[in-house]
């Protein structure tokens, strides 16, 4: 059963130099209770796909296609329809906890207003639930934190507050947009533990958007890899790591430093620059940087094709298992 079903989503932004497509014809579905990882470089469209789902595109952005949340299309939905979903049935955690909390409001109020809006809670009930939620995300001295302002908390604590805020109404899905990127490594692990706990105990579906494959490995069930606004490969997490089928995925994996790297060689990088979305290369967007590219790749774009029980890829080449 899918809770979020994205079909043929295209997101474009009007700019001074014409329209730029950030997301092109993306289809994805999020099953109830699963964790779907979305990987890609910055500018690959991974965040904008889900910003569109939350109705949070910038004013110059426009989405087309379908985004079905529990069967209801969110594209073109009214602000009040969106507001009955956002924060209530679908929560979002943002990348930068330092700037994502309102600086002039106490933590307790920021958490509480979610249940006041969606559940009609009284301020006292809201405060109680906020406290319970802070404890759930393992914030020490939770009682005292309720009356603190965001700037009085550390980055890790603020991200926990963000998670608590997204969880206030026990949503069916959470979108976590680079939830650990701005944090120290040790704190990252704690945040991931909390997210894992949420997934396992509350059975909340999680979309985990990241460029860090390590984060994906620890939490995701399935992975979608995005490049230049398109999905280039989807597979379950084991297959992605064991047997990447798209050259870009392979490149990404090779870039990830490994402790058990016996060769101790230089760090691998994917050469070249991420493409300029305003003038994408012809054919497969990745071909200029691709080690496998051949004639056809420069003229024709490979479609996303199912290549196994649980996977799909958009590439003309068949890559042998390593």
């Amino acid at each position: 059963m899918s809770i979020l079903d994205i079909r043929n989503l295209t997101v474009s932004f009007k700019t001074q130099d014409g329209a730029v497509s950030a997301v092109n014809d993306v289809s994805l579905s999020l099953q109830k209770g699963e964790c779907l990882g979305i990987v890609g470089e910055s500018g690959s469209g991974k965040s904008q796909t889900f910003m569109a789902a939350m109705g949070l595109l910038a004013a110059n952005g426009k989405a087309s296609g379908e985004i079905l949340f529990d069967g209801q299309n969110l594209i073109g939905a009214s602000e009040s329809t969106l507001n009955s979903v956002r924060g209530n049935r679908m929560g979002m955690i943002f990348q930068d906890p330092m700037t994502s909390l309102t600086p002039h409001m106490k933590i307790g109020r920021q958490l509480g207003e979610v249940v006041i809006k969606h559940r009609g809670a009284t301020p006292a009930q809201a405060r109680e639930q906020a406290l319970a939620m802070l404890k759930r995300v393992q914030i020490p001295e939770a009682e005292r934190r309720l009356d603190m302002y965001p700037h009085e908390l550390s980055g890790g604590l603020r991200q926990r507050v963000m998670i608590a805020m997204a969880l206030m109404c026990s949503p069916e899905a959470i979108i976590a947009d680079e939830p650990t990127t701005a944090l120290d490594v040790t704190v990252q692990a704690q945040i991931l533990d909390i997210l894992r706990d949420v997934k396992e105990r509350l059975n909340t579906a999680i979309v985990l958007i990241t460029h860090d494959l390590g984060v994906i490995a620890g939490l995701a069930d399935r992975v979608a890899v995005m490049y230049a606004g398109r999905i280039v490969e989807v597979a379950d997490v084991r297959s992605i790591f064991a047997n990447p089928q798209h050259p870009y995925t392979k490149g990404l994996l090779a870039c990830t430093p490994r402790l058990d790297d016996a060769c101790g060689g230089a760090m691998t990088t994917i050469s070249g620059q991420p493409p300029n979305l305003q003038r994408l290369p012809s054919g497969c967007s990745f071909h200029p940087r691709c080690g496998y590219a051949f004639e056809k790749c420069t003229t024709e774009r490979p479609a996303l094709e199912v290549v196994g029980a649980t996977r799909a890829k958009a590439c003309f080449k068949t890559i042998e298992a390593a």
Binding site: S271, G272, Q273, P288, G291, Y292, T298
Partner: peptide
């Protein structure tokens, strides 16, 4: 881009 242009590994590319 020439089709055979495998890996633009030279730093000049950027």
């Amino acid at each position: 881009h020439t089709p055979t242009n495998i890996n633009l590994s030279s730093p000049h590319a950027a």
